[in-house]
Design a protein around this nucleic acid. Structure first.
Lengths: 203, 203
DNA sequence: GATCCTTGCCTATATGTTTTAGGAAACAAC
DNA sequence: GTTGTTTCCTAAAACATATAGGCAAGGATC
């Protein structure tokens, strides 16, 4: 019996292609084994189990997104940078729905997925630096941008915007534009907010 | 053998409680059967299978959210209405994470889930009416609001905002405020956009 | 070149879940 | 009481996760 020469990366890769083609729910050790040409039990030589495989898949997706975002951000700033960052997420999600869905898998803060998650936060922070926000506002902005992007892509992939005019593409451009506008206004707004609701005691 | 007097609603209810307590992934026909005191095969008398159960769970969650949103919207308008709508979603998601997660289950446009989804769109539209947007801008706004809310709640439930200052509660209030501000600006902005980027040929 | 050692892959097995098929008993209506 | 419907059962097939133990391929070492 000749060896297939399988590696962990190849197993994860097979899972990624399966997820994109058939949906994340279709990813099972059995099906991955089938597609790599080995028996199910043999995959345990490369991954610790289904949960480990899904975690590695999440790490792969996060890394790929961060790579693309970093590349897209080279040489741009301000509004263009925000659009490039947001587009990197959405384009990846549309091109690789299964991997994107894997991203929601609960990930350990340590490990490769944690490192990738930190890269994401850093990239968003780098983009937001161009808006001149103060520290606290920047955290809020990171979360807002993340919410809009993640929410839109998730709903779009779920088909919530299909079969309805205008196209989701239009709405996406509109959303990014509104986001840019809002961030710009936040930067020019009171740099030291005196709103009693947001400047309570800071423990 | 005395009958348990089970009904479809009771099965779905058991699944809902299971999902909230142990996570949506823990919902299986076996576990639901265990909790309702019947054998696994017996649940097939009430639901057509696991997929049908999850779809019914999604419909239940969407209906419950719509009910709460509708109640929260009674007698308020403008900024308060927007906040009430958004809070209804988030409060439900935090209180019932499993049911909220079930919402992402692919739903057929016909059937009860489809009706609930339409209620949601109508509720959002009702809130946005207070901002005086034109038709096309209103569609964009519905999608934007949906994205922000869904994205934020999803990320918050995934723990993305935990272990980090300031609290996610602060960021949430901030996000809703920014959203209100953005919508208000859209209403006062050019009612007929002449931006060449957004008014290309309409095929 | 013969001998280890690691390890990729195997078979076999235990356990749990989904789903269908067929039957018995509870319950309701007449 | 008979009939009919519905709930729940047992039985069984198909498939998934996971572990244990074994065999041999591919190197490294002597």
């Amino acid at each position: 019996m000749p060896r297939r020469g399988l590696s962990t990366d190849q197993v994860v890769q097979a899972a990624a292609e399966l997820a994109d083609a058939e949906g994340l729910a279709a990813v099972s050790l059995s099906e991955v084994a089938r597609r790599t040409g080995v028996r199910t039990a043999s995959t345990y030589s490369h991954v610790a189990g289904l949960d480990d495989l899904l975690a590695r898949l999440a790490a792969l997706a996060l890394t790929e997104i961060a790579d693309r975002a970093a590349a897209a951000l080279a040489g741009v700033a301000g509004r263009e940078a925000l659009a490039a960052l947001c587009d990197a997420y959405r384009d990846y999600g549309l091109a690789h729905p299964g991997r994107y869905a894997a991203t929601r898998h609960p990930l350990a803060p340590d490990g490769p997925a944690g490192a990738a998650a930190r890269r994401h936060a850093d990239l968003t922070r780098a983009v937001l630096r161009g808006y001149g926000l103060e520290e606290q506002a920047q955290v809020h902005a990171v979360r807002l941008v993340g919410s809009v992007v993640h929410g839109f892509v998730t709903l779009e992939l779920a088909g919530a915007f299909a079969h309805s005019q205008p196209s989701s593409e239009r709405s996406w451009r509109h959303a990014v534009e509104v986001l840019d506008d809002a961030l710009r206004r936040l930067s020019t707004a009171a740099p030291e907010s005196t709103d009693p609701e947001t400047t309570r005691s800071t423990p």
